[in-house]
Design a protein around this nucleic acid. Structure first.
Length: 419
DNA sequence: TCTGGGGTCCTCGGGCGT
DNA sequence: TCTGACGCCCGAGGACCC
């Protein structure tokens, strides 16, 4: 059996743990640069504040409805998430951390357990130890546990936050209740095509002929169908720790046509990618640099471009990656265009101690100890105090974060003092 | 003025070797 | 020596997720 444990309104709940005044009130969390709404409490949802709403258009609505609007505080959410996940690991060794706010748990050899009671004790412990409310869905497959979780979340008074699909009757009832577009793995495009075929709920979907699904859609949908039928097909992925690509992409606060500004931003993004690579113990073979104008400004000339660089040796050196990325961005930069967004993606990742050596070219061996020193200093003094030459040394780029809560759990100066 | 960021997997089509 | 069939690899693009 699988369980899906999902934190309710995770970002809003994290804020509430340290600011109980927000309890029971509508709360909205903004994306980077305070751009648009990316998380809402139940109360904010009920008021009709949509997901993805650009805040500058909804400012007066939020004021009128007393919605508490906050900048996103990822250090806080990340830390709270790892606390929740470490508690979940006490309940079974088989855990897949699926995202910042949800995990799949597999229960092997739990046949004699009352899984409803067990689910309740998971919720209780997470709530007591972290203050985060959760919902738990339990079922024979991952896709069904997703649905069970939705039921637990939707009917908290009947389910007390835990729902178990353990009979055929319950499975059929749950599938009938699930709209086609709400199935995990069915997005907007597929839903449109399925509705056109007369498929409106998950039960309809499972009744389609196997072969037809495979030929008209793909193996993904056919696997999903089996999972919904109750045949475990999607497996628990426990070793997803090493990423296959790493990206740092950002919108700018304004649009810029100055190549020097763009070069500096790209260098910083490249440096960030290199740091993430070193944290994971990987090097990259491929660097992709993206540059894009403001797609919302239809009246301005648009330009979107990307360039891929293949390296002959893998690297995680900030210097090498940054230099390549800056050269690359200069090759796609067009004069006169106002750019709003740039990014660096590294892929072709290999473990750093175990890569194919190239007899002709290799990384400058001096970079390794240099990067180690930079990482040590930056970790000791918190942040990115050590920069490389093509980053701007004077200016410290800050996202717009006008409504940021303190880093209650990760910054010693922000810890709450009880007097 | 102000519209996010970071991932995965799959299919398809072209290039290329057998 | 030429040609078609086939399989493999790779990049681009599209779908999905949070």
């Amino acid at each position: 059996m699988f369980a899906l444990v999902d934190c309710n309104n995770f970002y809003a709940s994290c804020e509430r743990v340290f600011n109980p005044n927000l309890e029971g009130k509508p709360v909205a969390i903004l994306s980077n640069n305070d751009g648009c709404v990316i998380a809402r409490s139940d109360q904010a949802k009920a008021l009709g504040l949509p997901m993805g709403a650009p805040i500058f258009k909804w400012e007066s609505f939020c004021k009128a409805n007393n919605i508490h609007v906050l900048s996103s505080n990822y250090p806080l959410y990340g830390d709270m998430s790892s606390r929740v996940m470490s508690i979940l690991k006490q309940f079974t060794p088989d855990v897949e951390v699926y995202s910042i706010d949800e995990s799949f748990l597999e229960f092997k050899g739990f046949e004699h357990y009352n899984l409803n009671t067990y689910g309740q004790s998971i919720r209780k412990r997470v709530k007591k130890w972290t203050g985060i409310p959760t919902s738990v869905g339990i079922a024979p497959t991952k896709a069904l546990s997703k649905i069970a979780n939705k039921i637990a979340r939707k009917f908290p008074t009947q389910t007390k936050g835990v729902y178990v699909i353990d009979t055929e009757d319950k499975r059929i009832k749950a599938l009938k209740w699930t709209k086609i577009e709400d199935i995990w793995g069915i997005g907007r495009q597929l839903a449109k095509r399925l509705i056109a075929k007369g498929c409106t709920n998950a039960l309809d979907f499972t009744q389609l002929p196997d072969q037809w699904v495979k030929s008209n859609f793909s193996v993904v949908e056919s696997r999903l169908k089996r999972d919904l039928e109750g045949i475990p097909t999607l497996q628990l992925d426990e070793n997803g720790q090493d990423k296959k690509m790493i990206a740092t992409t950002r919108s700018f606060d304004y649009s810029y046509s100055d190549i020097n500004y763009i070069k500096e931003r790209v260098s910083t993004f490249a440096t960030r990618c290199a740091e993430k690579l070193r944290q994971q113990g990987s090097g990259c073979h491929v660097i992709i640099v993206l540059l894009s104008s403001d797609r919302h400004k239809k009246t301005l000339e648009q330009h979107r471009a990307s360039v891929t660089i293949n390296l002959s040796f893998p690297t995680n050196s900030s210097l090498t990656i940054s230099n390549c990325a800056v050269k690359a961005v200069m090759s796609i930069f067009k004069k006169g265009i106002k750019y709003k967004r740039a990014g660096v993606i590294v892929s072709g990742l290999v473990p750093v101690n175990n890569y194919q050596l190239n007899i002709f070219e290799s990384e400058n061996p001096k970079h390794v100890p240099l990067m180690q020193s930079i990482d040590r200093l930056n970790s000791k003094f918190r942040g990115d105090k050590i920069k490389i030459g093509n980053q701007d040394l004077q200016r410290t780029w800050k996202m717009r974060q006008e409504r940021l809560s303190p880093k209650y759990t990760t910054n010693i100066n922000d810890i709450i003092v009880v007097k």
